[in-house]
Amino acid sequence: MERPCLSRRHALLLPATAAGLGGLAACGPEDEGFGTAEPLRADDGAIPLDDIPENQSTLVNFGGQQPFVLLVRGAGDDLTAYSGYCTHNGCALRQEEAELDCPCHGSRFDAATGEVLLGPATRQLPEIPVTVEDGLIRRDR
């Protein structure tokens, strides 16, 4: 008698294998869509202060490692910068109006203060040192 090409044991493993592969597909490349706000690019490592609207938050790509920075500008030269990555698992954040959303696990942060609005993240976004000189914003290294 010839054995079937698919044993009962292997047939029972198919649903578990398909579910596992589907889960891995969901963990694909990091989502850097940034929701309603495309990050500004600082191709030469600097961005003009005038490109950041007063009393608003703007995601900026400074390039290099951990390139995404949230710049929060008050009036004039009042500027604070936060990491653009979730403190829970390091995923790039997306800006949705006055909030930053983590596409990986659903954490949300206040785009003006970096404080956690919704977990699983428990730590606010860390501040990033930046310098404003001659009307240009540069990320300190």
Score class of each variant (00 low, 15 high):
A111C: 06
R141Q: 14
F34A: 11
A26M: 12
L118C: 14
V72F: 06
V132W: 04
T131P: 06
L59M: 15
T131G: 09
A81D: 01
R141Y: 11
G22F: 11
R108T: 06
R138W: 06
R73C: 03
L100A: 04
Q66A: 15
P103S: 06
C5K: 13
G106H: 05
A111V: 02
L12P: 08
N55P: 02
Q56R: 15
N89G: 15
L79V: 10
D77M: 10
G33W: 03
E99K: 11
S83K: 07
G76C: 03
I52S: 05
V69S: 09
H105Y: 02
L59W: 01
E32A: 15
A26I: 06
I137T: 01
A121Y: 01
G90T: 03
G64T: 02
R8L: 09
A121H: 05
A26V: 12
A75M: 07
G22T: 12
A26G: 11
N55R: 09
Q95E: 01
A16G: 13
N89W: 10
A16V: 14
P53D: 07
V132A: 02
A25W: 14
F68P: 07
C86R: 05
D51T: 04
C102E: 00
Y85H: 13
G22N: 02
T113M: 01
S57F: 04
Y85M: 07
T80N: 13
T122D: 13
N89Q: 15
A98V: 11
L13T: 08
G23I: 12
C104Y: 05
G114L: 03
G22I: 09
V132Q: 07
G45V: 00
C104I: 00
P15Y: 03
L24E: 09
C104L: 11
E133R: 13
E99L: 11
G28F: 09
I137C: 00
T122P: 04
R3A: 14
V69M: 00
T58F: 06
Y82G: 00
I137R: 00
A26F: 11
A112W: 02
L125Q: 05
A81G: 05
R3L: 13
P120W: 05
S107T: 03
Q66T: 14
